[in-house]
């Protein structure tokens, strides 16, 4: 059976695409899936760092496309998960070195031997984004509970819907801070979903753990890990209930509860 190509994109920069791609890839691999993650952010390579593989890179995606190496040679095997590999972005070239057709060719070749091909898209709606979504069987749109991120997500979703061959699009709300949501100072997941009207596949809390794990180039731990693993399972078709972020109210939250605040 052929694998699925899933592109992670967002419109707005810095919302957590690379963090999500890396952690989803590692979660899927730990669930015994054969995974290859492609860094499509040409010129701004980062997925290698998030996956702790920056020291093992020999060839990159542009080398593959321009025929300097075989696809296999550009695949960097993950040290902890033998069934996970990374195809790094080129750090020196720019995104025009690759075309949507190149991405389709590469993804099609990878699909056969893998369960999941994850593509980390660059921000924006231009060339790099078009490359990243060209081979997608499915798209995950990452957003933050913030006005500009939601607006940009809406724009991306509109573009994806207008494609000749629209693919399923699902939403990840990243960096939710429950304390702020409760105080009414952050859009809730429900708010974001109702504005964007697409299916939700996951919610990831804002957590320092993400910064620590990316410092070390390893998978997140704790609640973020759980959140990514839940998304991985949903991608695999399991019905996983949405995490109850409620149990972790911050100090102020607990204080407020103590006084009977809503």
């Amino acid at each position: 059976m052929s694998g699925r190509v899933i592109t992670i994109t967002s419109g707005k920069g810095g919302v957590g695409k690379t963090t999500t791609t890396a952690n989803l890839a590692m979660s899927l691999a730990s669930l015994e899936q054969r995974v290859v993650a492609i860094d499509a952010d040409i010129g701004l390579r980062n997925l290698d760092l998030m996956m702790g593989l920056e020291n093992r890179i020999v060839y990159d995606l542009v080398d593959v496309v321009e025929g300097r190496c075989k696809l296999k040679q550009a695949m960097v095997k993950h040290k902890d998960y033998p069934a996970l590999a990374l195809i790094p972005a080129s750090q020196v070239r720019d995104k025009t070195a690759i075309s949507p057709q190149d991405m389709i060719t590469v993804a099609n070749e990878l699909k056969h031997a893998h369960d999941f091909v994850l593509i980390d898209s660059p921000a924006g709606i231009e060339w790099g984004f078009k490359n990243a979504v060209a081979p997608a069987d499915e798209v995950l749109v990452v957003t933050n509970p913030e006005v500009s991120a939601v607006r940009d997500a809406d724009r991306i979703i509109g573009l994806l819907e207008a494609e000749e061959r629209p693919v399923p699009v699902r939403l990840i709300v990243n960096r939710i801070k429950l304390g702020m949501v409760r105080r009414g100072d952050m859009l809730s997941v429900e708010d974001v979903v109702s504005l964007l009207s697409i299916k939700l596949i996951g919610v990831v809390p804002d957590d320092e753990i993400i910064i620590k794990s990316s410092n070390e180039g390893v998978a997140a731990t704790g609640r973020p890990k759980q959140a990514f693993e839940d998304i991985a399972r949903r991608l695999m078709g399991e019905k996983v209930p949405f995490m109850n972020l409620d149990s972790n109210g911050g100090v102020l939250e607990r204080f407020r509860k103590l006084f009977g605040g809503g």
Binding site: E146, V147, V150, R151, D154, R155, G158, V181, R183, G184, D185, M186, L187, S188, D191, L195, L252, R256, G261
Partner: peptide
């Protein structure tokens, strides 16, 4: 203490987004 009195900023964000999304689309 938790500034409950003012219009909650998330509510304002919702209103602004509803407006801007429909215009964008």
């Amino acid at each position: 203490f938790f500034s409950r009195k003012d219009q909650r900023s998330a509510k304002t964000a919702m209103e602004r987004l509803r407006f801007v999304l429909v215009t964008d689309r």
